[in-house]
């Protein structure tokens, strides 16, 4: 199969859906002429015109609000918030308006809106451009939260998101844009809310998503050399969570580890871990383990930044001490 980057996969998904459906349009800061801060929307303005690929002012709240208004009146907007760190500026519009409007209106409207953003550390950009804030949003009923790790998942899930009649928060990772992987040619759709077993195993279940999938797979390879076979599951969608696939694995391995880049307290792992407790308590041979980001604002220093998030070494060590 051909290999393309995560960035190209996303670009293809946008391009194909815009070709397929005239009601799809893009809007955000620097998405048109510049092609997006990380180049995801490169050449789409040239292809589809300035009407359908729109540079906005620096107005995060209006980008979300206008996306919502367009979504409930016949369009399928894909809007971009450049960094997830900027979400605080438009959190009211996402949390109060986008996520709730269908319920508040008694189900009498649909919200086919995709909010693309990216997060994560790795570029030493400091505390305002490096956060992993997904746990803020899994706390909001009405949203669906997707965080793909591989190019294929990025393409298949973005295409499905654009066709979905519910609001989607689609969180990319800044360190994955150049990662290459096999992506099927042509129409490729993946189900939202379905986890994927990225590596089968029997000794422990490791749940890892976004960039942490890669560090976890590396750790899993080293563990295998030590005779420990872990099953690595990427939920891909954090809300709704595919607990069925996770629970099925935990019933087989009797151990569960969550690897997450976000800060530990009140993080995504807290939710996934608790759901494992609720669903598989009697199956567990050890407490659920969280390998998570440090509870600190992300520091600038490359040395400190590296210490702030899990890496393959740490994942390897912590899993090994749990399983042995």
């Amino acid at each position: 199969m051909r290999e393309i980057t995560y960035r190209q996969a996303l670009n293809e998904a946008l391009s194909e859906e815009m070709e397929r459906d005239q009601s799809v349009f893009l809007m955000g800061e620097d998405v048109a002429v510049y092609g997006g801060a990380y180049g995801v929307t490169l050449n789409l303005m040239q292809k589809f015109g300035e009407k359908r690929v729109r540079d906005t002012a620096i107005s995060e709240a209006a980008i979300i609000g206008a996306g919502l208004g367009a979504a409930i009146t016949g369009m399928r907007p894909v809007v971009e918030i450049m960094y997830i760190d900027f979400m605080g500026i438009c959190l009211e519009q996402i949390g109060n308006q986008v996520a709730k409007i269908r319920y508040m209106f008694g189900g009498k409207t649909r919200v086919p809106l995709v909010i693309r953003t990216e997060g994560g550390a790795g570029r030493t950009l400091g505390a305002h451009h490096s956060q992993s804030l997904e746990s803020w949003f899994i706390h909001v009923p009405g949203l669906k939260v997707i965080m793909p790790a591989t190019p294929a998942d990025a393409k298949g899930l973005l295409k499905s998101s654009i066709r979905e009649d519910n609001p989607i928060l689609f969180i990319e990772h800044k360190m994955l844009y150049n990662v290459k992987g096999p992506v099927p040619e042509g129409e490729y759709l993946l189900p939202i809310g379905k986890a994927d077993v990225k590596r089968p195993g029997k000794d422990a279940t490791v749940i890892a998503y976004s960039r942490m999938l890669y560090s976890t797979l590396e750790a899993a390879k080293r563990l295998a050399e030590d005779g420990i076979e872990v099953e690595v599951i990427d939920p891909r969608t954090l809300l709704p969570l595919d607990m069925e696939t996770i629970a099925e694995s935990v019933r087989k391995t009797h151990r569960a580890i969550i690897v997450e880049e976000d800060t530990k307290t009140g993080g995504t792992g807290a939710e996934i871990g608790m759901q494992i407790m609720e669903n598989c308590f009697d199956e567990l041979d050890a407490p659920v383990l969280r390998i998570a980001g440090a509870d600190i604002p992300m520091p600038k220093s490359a040395v400190l930044e590296k210490l702030a998030i899990p890496d393959a070494d740490r994942i390897y060590r912590e899993i090994k001490s749990l399983v042995m």
Binding site: A61, A62, I64, G65, A66, G67, L68, G69, A70, A71, I72, T73, G74, M75, P77, E92, Q93, N96, Q97, I101, M104, F105, K108, T109
Partner: peptide
């Protein structure tokens, strides 16, 4: 709210619907 009658909704947040109106205008 009654979207079928073109009423895109009252709002509990002061100013909260101004973006929605703007987006409806963009959609038009």
């Amino acid at each position: 709210a009654d979207v079928s009658k073109g009423n895109l909704g009252a709002n509990g947040i002061v100013g909260g619907s101004i973006g929605i109106a703007t987006g409806a205008g963009l959609s038009i």
